[in-house]
Amino acid sequence: MNTTPEHDARFANMTFSAVYPLYVTKVEKKGRSLDELHQVIAWLTGFNEADLQALIKQKATFQQFFAAASINPNAQLIRGLICGYRVEEIATPLTQQVRWLDKLVDELAKGRKIEKILRSAE
């Protein structure tokens, strides 16, 4: 599935620091912990809590955020709908990576077990 260039540019220029508090609120409202959120983000990106805080302080865009990330090779196993898009069909790598993160946060907030969220080769 192709997204529009405007859509992709919006993700590239959006700052992680603007979205991170929304992730925190979403998971905590559903009874999940900040540690679990950080575990999910670390699985996808390789970033630890100190890395995240530095990226937030720098006001890193998602383009910068994912350029610095070490994407988990099993991220390709992330499947499903997020905001009306099938994440496995998104053609633009950055947009797909942002949607992967959204999908993982969504699964955490919906109560999915961490072991299932942190996909392993099946």
Rank of each mutant, 00 (worst) to 15 (best):
N13R: 14
A60K: 10
C83I: 05
Q76R: 06
E49K: 05
S120C: 12
R112W: 07
V27F: 03
L34F: 06
N74I: 01
E107N: 06
E28I: 02
T15I: 08
V24T: 07
K57Y: 07
K30D: 02
Q96L: 06
M14Q: 15
G111A: 01
T92C: 01
I41M: 09
G80F: 03
I56T: 08
K30P: 02
G80P: 03
K30Q: 00
V27D: 00
T61D: 00
D8E: 15
Q64K: 15
E49R: 04
Q97C: 05
L118H: 09
Q63E: 15
Y85F: 11
D106Y: 11
L52I: 07
A9P: 06
T92P: 05
K110A: 13
D102F: 15
C83F: 10
R112F: 08
V24A: 11
G84Y: 02
R119D: 06
Q39E: 09
S120L: 15
A9H: 10
A54C: 00
P21Q: 08
R86Y: 12
T25K: 11
L44V: 10
Q63V: 13
D51W: 02
T3I: 14
K103V: 10
F16A: 00
A69F: 11
I56D: 10
L94R: 02
G46K: 04
L34C: 00
A12C: 03
K30I: 02
I41T: 06
R32F: 09
N72F: 05
R112K: 05
A75S: 15
A67P: 12
E36D: 14
K59N: 09
D35Y: 12
A68G: 00
P73Q: 07
A67M: 12
L52M: 04
P5M: 15
K59T: 12
E122I: 12
Y20Q: 01
Q58E: 15
Q53E: 10
K26D: 06
W100T: 02
L34R: 10
E115S: 07
C83E: 10
L44M: 04
D35Q: 13
A50K: 13
P93K: 01
V87T: 01
I117T: 10
L37E: 01
A12V: 07
V40I: 09
K59E: 10
Q53M: 10
Q64P: 15
L94G: 03
I78D: 05
T4I: 07
Q58K: 15
E28R: 02
A91Q: 10
A50F: 08
F62C: 13
T61R: 03
E115H: 05
N13L: 14
N48W: 08
T61Y: 01
R86A: 13
F16P: 00
K116L: 13
Q76E: 08
V19R: 12
D35P: 04
T61L: 01
I90K: 04
D35R: 13
L81V: 08
D106E: 11
F11K: 03
G84I: 01
Q39I: 01
G31Y: 05
G111W: 02
S17E: 12
P73T: 06
I78K: 04
D102I: 09
H38K: 12
N2D: 09
Q53R: 04
F66V: 14
A75H: 12
E28H: 04
A68W: 02
Q96T: 08
V19Q: 11
H7L: 14
S70P: 08
Y20I: 00
Q76S: 12
A69M: 12
A109H: 08
L52D: 04
M1A: 14
